[in-house]
Nucleic acid binder design. Structure first.
Lengths: 140, 140
DNA sequence: CCTACATCCTCTAGCGACTAGAGGTGCAAG
DNA sequence: CTTGCACCTCTAGTCGCTAGAGGATGTAGG
């Protein structure tokens, strides 16, 4: 088998080189074998694992959640109830975050629209920040 | 004038006690005068400033942006162009983040719906994570 | 006045998930 | 053989706090 260097692994998985080493250091990725010159030599399976991690991170899963998802992947006979629960929890988080950001968006739009582009003492941006009661929503 | 303790200031502004000290340490809030026993003694203006900071943080502004907004508030004769620019930039960020989260939401929903609640080797959650090509959107 | 207790003080270290940099070694091409 | 990139380890920094240690101060009741 051909040796996959860390740079190659990074390029193929889309995870940065220092991040690969970081994942190894926290035990998310098994320590690969080393070449004579002490350089890491990865297997194709490591690339898949890194891609899995990267994808999960992009979806906003936390490292500990990914650790659980990975142990599930490692043992395909387990029930996928935990995977389902993790994904559902993440979905709920995302939905909550979207709602919250929509409220922020509305408030920021009011601030920006109200700005007369004059001096600060007439600026709605500063004014709204200073006085919470001017918020349309009591979201936060 | 009556002395406002840090606990009182925290309660009135909605900023936690250690956070008030932290804001002072990074120069976001001027160091208040001290009592005989070396305890901080705040002015009403400090409470307003803290409330301003808190509100801006809730809206997701970064500390450095808030620092700029505060210097604008301190000098009301300045043009509010920078305040406007900061708020606009934040609005753009929020809009981008919402778009991104909507895409995530869609993907998570597909994962969760596809889960047959059986074993991991038939689980759509794990499967989608392992294979990025199964994503409906190429958002990330 | 004494005691209990809450609140205050400073300082350091930790969180998550990396990222940056120093200082050194390995390796392949020209 | 030398150039130059990729690799190695290790430490420290990022952001915005938060937690805890260990001690001083302030207040209310007995």
């Amino acid at each position: 088998m051909k040796k996959i260097t860390i740079g190659e692994a990074a390029r193929r998985s889309g995870v940065k080189v220092p991040t690969v080493r970081y994942y190894e250091s926290i035990g998310l990725l098994a320590a690969p074998s080393r070449s004579e010159g002490n350089q890491r030599s990865f297997e194709p399976a490591d690339i898949s694992r890194l891609a899995f991690i990267r994808h999960a991170r992009e979806l906003g899963f936390e490292i500990e959640a990914i650790r659980t998802l990975l142990t599930l992947q490692d043992d395909p006979h387990q029930s996928c109830a935990s995977a389902d629960a993790i994904a559902k929890a993440r979905l709920a988080e995302v939905e909550q975050r979207i709602r919250s950001l929509m409220a922020l968006k509305a408030e920021l739009e009011i601030m920006v629209e109200g700005c007369g582009h004059g001096r600060v003492d007439q600026c709605r941006v500063i004014e709204v920040l200073a006085d919470h009661d001017q918020c349309t929503h009591s979201h936060h």
